[in-house]
Amino acid sequence: MTTIDTFSEGRKLRRATSGTPRTLTEGTLTEDRTQASQNPPKGAADSVQATAGKPAGLRTISRGTWLPYLVPVGLVLVWQVLSSTGLISDRIMPSPVAVVAAFWERLLSGELGRDVAVSGARALSGLLIGGSIGFLLGIANGVSKLSEQLTDTTLQMLRTIPHLAMIPLVILWFGIGEEAKLFLTSLGVLFPIYLNTYHGVKNVDRDLVEMGKIYGMSSWSLFRKVIFPGALPSIFVGLRYALGIMWLTLIVSESIAANSGIGYMANTAREFMMTEVVVLALVIYAVLGKLADVIARALERWALSWNAAYQA
């Protein structure tokens, strides 16, 4: 008797789940769940909930997963069709297949790995140097009035200069070696990290700072237990913004002068009219940029898991 009951309930639920929009489905689902749980045997009701919950969950996950990729995949398909039919010339834009072939060829020869490694190392060292300076200045100016009065105005002034405008000067200073790229990348990431760290420290809840002082925290304790964690959400905003600038600066400085790296790869390819390699370089920049952002986001979610806004 109960088995049949459960079965029919389950069928009804499954029917309700398929085909209807998500919000509606959920409404029906909870309604039916209450009905199901009113059935006498508890186990039976539970099994109904289990079968009912699964399809809805799968639908939500799969839709959220594939929908964002619909547009890019569609664009690539259209592009391939246009290239194959000859509507777009190879000399203007290579076909996606040609780009994939270029990728495969360079991957096998090891050139690609080397170029990506070189560019990645440049990006990271620039981020590390510029980021550390920006972070330390931000903390110092947020905490100390003297330091703020001494350096903040200067930094705010320098910040308004587009750092890429310094390229001619940088070439005069450092030539076209690694130092030039490192300097430009560091300079680029310094300001977003500085501004957001400074802003974060300035906005730490004064009541919490007072509390820390009441409980006898030393300045070091106060920094690591109250000020730094309080500024962290803002510092992460700065970091993610800096990552964007980091890639941008690197691309530009590698295009000016380099004998290795992705920018170099793209520029050499231009000389030989190898459009597919140029496009490959763009794709790699996009992938690296996205990767950096994904890592930063994951780090952010982990470090800020206390914050309701970052809880999964």
Partner: peptide
């Protein structure tokens, strides 16, 4: 003890 708890949200 204050009117507001003043807890550190990250602890």
């Amino acid at each position: 003890v204050f009117q507001e708890p003043r807890l550190l949200p990250w602890f």
